[in-house]
Write a protein that binds this DNA or RNA. Sequence first.
DNA 1: TTGCATTATTTGCAGGTACAATTATTGCAA
DNA 2: TTGCAATAATTGTACCTGCAAATAATGCAA
Lengths: 152, 152
Amino acid sequence: MAVAEQVTAGVAWERTLRAVSRLLRVFDRELQDDVDLPLTWYDVLVQLYSAPDVRLRMQTLSDSLVLTRSGATRLVDRIEKAGLVRREPAAEDRRGYYAILTADGQRLMERAQKAHGAGIERHFGKHLDPDEQKTLFAIMSKLLAGNQNIPG
Amino acid sequence: MAVAEQVTAGVAWERTLRAVSRLLRVFDRELQDDVDLPLTWYDVLVQLYSAPDVRLRMQTLSDSLVLTRSGATRLVDRIEKAGLVRREPAAEDRRGYYAILTADGQRLMERAQKAHGAGIERHFGKHLDPDEQKTLFAIMSKLLAGNQNIPG
DNA sequence: TTGCATTATTTGCAGGTACAATTATTGCAA
DNA sequence: TTGCAATAATTGTACCTGCAAATAATGCAA
């Protein structure tokens, strides 16, 4: 047993969890204050905004979100009710639907992106130099790749 | 604009969020399968287990959890109902309460720790060499320190 | 010592989320 | 071409969470 505290996997994971949770809460509140948008809504809107034709199949969408399929369904329900997104049946597979960003959604998105981008810089980017950001990206990519084929 | 994709703060944060979310879901399911314990319960039990006298003030507990105060109250309610934790008023400040691990709680904790530790190694530690774990720990510590004084 | 701002914790309430079952459609295989 | 397992998405249900208000106790200041 060394004198200096050893960084075990458990300790590293725990600290990661804490830091990420705190950031999530900060981002959520700030986004809500700035453009009256929950972070979960924002996540949906960004995905669509950066997709070809500002549209995505429900499945693709939920895969890239931090949610299950059913969670994505309800979330899109709410956003659709607010007029930021609309649904359209998929021509090529009638089981599927597209979620599509509306004009209102795009406008809001542009404001939100500015606000959230600034928040990320303020609470995340500012504290890490470019090397650290690159390293973090690499580490998280490894973890994601190593846990790919898991449902949810 | 460089040819190689640049790792901006936003991209690094997004990847972090995805990876952590996936790990959380994996850990939660595995723990549930192995010892029939939700990850949130586990979080409470570990904190108490590693505290002096296996007890912690509600406030201290919720501070170290990924939850608000009120969330911690309800969570401890449920765990208490299951007999793994009990509450005791704080002698030194009658506004406060201690959450205390019961004997049952300690027994379960020992099993759970083994299972979850293995899971962390399998899905997290295994994919990162010791240097990366140390770096990650350092990065997350910076982020946590930089976002200290924020309520929630 | 009385009054009041502050702190610790809990509750009412209004969503948000996951799991499992359901509906609709696809496409392969006999 | 009929039957059936697989797939896309949704819905029923039960639980979990956060916010803000309520309750209770503290301790400082006039």
